[in-house]
Amino acid sequence: MGRPSRKDEILQAALACFSEHGVDATTIEMIRDRSGASIGSLYHHFGNKERIIAALYLEGVGGYARLLEAGFATADSAEACIKLLVACYIDWVSANPDWARFILHSRGRVEASELGGQLRDANRLHHGRIEEALRPYREAGAFREMPRDCFVSVVIGPAQDFTRNWLAGRTRTTLADCRELFMQVAWDAVRSR
């Protein structure tokens, strides 16, 4: 893997500052100092702190989406696809806990920002890819009947709830220890009987 770009270095520095000091308390100067970038470079790549926040959010959710897309390329059944949704979510959060905390607490801020449209577009694209991967199995009757807008919440909801508690330090069980359980719970919740 090559050297991270200046933009990536700035985003990682911002994440470290947000994790250490909080989003509101972090200044652009703190990000500059942590990244070693010049103010000109920060403004060239992002323009302001709100754009850094949005870019960091979009890159984080994009990481999960890329992990999921790679998995869909080899998933060969309805069960594998559903379990993949949960496995990728848990794996990404386990590997990126600070980023996951940031995402959980920053969605509303990004949605309300000038880059909220980019987030909505990214979400539409992501959910469209999930729908496309699941379509053949849905058409074959592999899933129980339920409103479409409930489906992903039913699949990922239990894992997402536990993950929030894990990220907040309120669980004794690790994500890795309950990964298989949540994958099976998701499949059991949506498979046709």
Rank of each mutant, 00 (worst) to 15 (best):
R3E: 15
L11K: 05
A14C: 11
V23P: 05
T26K: 02
T26S: 09
S35H: 02
A37T: 00
G40T: 07
S41L: 13
Y43M: 08
F46I: 08
N48V: 08
K49V: 01
K49I: 00
R51D: 11
I52Y: 03
I52G: 04
L56W: 01
Y57A: 02
R66G: 11
L68V: 08
A70F: 14
E79G: 10
I82G: 03
L84Y: 02
L84E: 10
A87T: 14
S94N: 12
A95K: 09
N96Y: 03
F102C: 06
H105E: 10
G108W: 05
R109C: 09
S113K: 10
S113F: 13
R120H: 11
D121A: 14
H127P: 04
R129M: 12
L134V: 10
R135T: 13
Y137H: 14
F143S: 03
P147W: 09
F151I: 04
V152M: 05
V154G: 00
V155W: 02
I156Q: 10
Q160Y: 15
N165L: 12
A168H: 09
T173Y: 02
T174L: 04
E180W: 06
E180K: 09
F182A: 00
F182S: 00
M183W: 02
V185S: 03
A186Q: 00
A186S: 04
D188Y: 09
D188F: 09
R191V: 07
S192A: 12
